[in-house]
């Protein structure tokens, strides 16, 4: 049986994950709006007026937003990780570059202090 190429694997994995991410983000927003509407709209007023420069989760419903956005932002890392074995089979130099990218992605995602200059 012909094994799938790295581009096919990456495209298929990210295709499904992005739809899951859209649903997760929409649900997180709906949860925040239904269960903490005054909190959400108070912050929205501040944001529209330019007064909200930094957002931090304050109520439990906010955490759903953090998880959903975090998940959506990990899609390319997951897609690339799954495609790496195929890349090693196809072209080792490109696979090495992909692993370098993955390390940099994980560094930015998991160790914010390392890259923070502000």
């Amino acid at each position: 049986m012909k094994s799938k190429s790295s581009e096919e694997i990456y495209a298929e994995v990210t295709k499904w994950l992005i739809y899951v991410a859209y649903v997760a983000m929409a649900l997180a927003l709906i949860i925040r709006l239904i269960f903490a509407p005054e909190h959400a709209f108070h912050q929205l007023e501040q944001a529209i007026a330019g007064g909200l420069a930094v957002w931090r989760p304050e109520v439990s419903q906010d955490m759903w937003v953090v998880y959903a956005v975090g998940f959506a932002n990990l899609i390319v890392a997951v897609g690339l990780s799954v495609a790496v074995p195929a890349l090693i089979r196809e072209h080792k130099a490109t696979a090495a570059v992909a692993i370098f990218i993955l390390l940099l992605l994980l560094l930015t995602a998991l160790a914010p202090g390392v890259l923070k200059i502000h």
Partner: peptide
């Protein structure tokens, strides 16, 4: 990757972002 810089810094606002 660049988005993490904004996310870690609290530079996203849920209603506008999503």
């Amino acid at each position: 990757a660049a988005l993490w810089v904004y996310i870690h810094g609290g530079k996203i606002y849920p209603e506008i972002y999503i």
